[in-house]
Amino acid sequence: MYSEANEKKIDELLTHYPVKRSAVLPALFVAQEEHGYVTDEDVEYLAQRLDMRVNEVEEVVTFYSMYSRRPVGRYKLQVCRTLSCMLNGAQQITEHLCKRLNVDVGATTQDGKFTIQEVECLGYCDLAPVLQVNFDYHEQVTPDRVDEIVGNLA
């Protein structure tokens, strides 16, 4: 189902726990790495691989905010909206991104490149406002800095 390296990752994960099901959270990240989001096939495949029922995998996918069941942009631009970031201009960052990419919060640009998301506290309160692009943190961002970051990805 997955690349050899990613299948090995799942094999390795299974050695960490006394029950297979425990590997479902990290394994779903592997699935997302492969397909960009969690597909129906991923859910069925992981259920089989981890001795779970399909609905048990599905309920995990839908519970946690870092998984997506629908295609998203190659780059997820996640702006923290919680208090410390709000006090330091997070709203301005989001508005700037929406204007620059001509797309609303939650939507993906037509070329499938960017999805803008407002997310809850990312643990960078002292370095607010923070933007996370996929897994990369960008701290104390300004509209100018955001232009640079997005420009480098274009």
């Binding site: 425990s22 990290p26 048990e56 995990v60 519970f63 905010s65 870092m66 998984y67």
Partner: peptide, 25 residues
């Protein structure tokens, strides 16, 4: 072993964390 969460504040509550570590909501 290091186990990743996946974006759920509630998992900071210790018993929710254990459920999550067991592969559940």
């Amino acid at each position: 072993y290091v186990h990743p969460g996946a974006g759920a504040y509630i998992c900071g509550e210790e018993t929710a964390l254990l459920e999550s570590l067991e592969g559940k909501r």
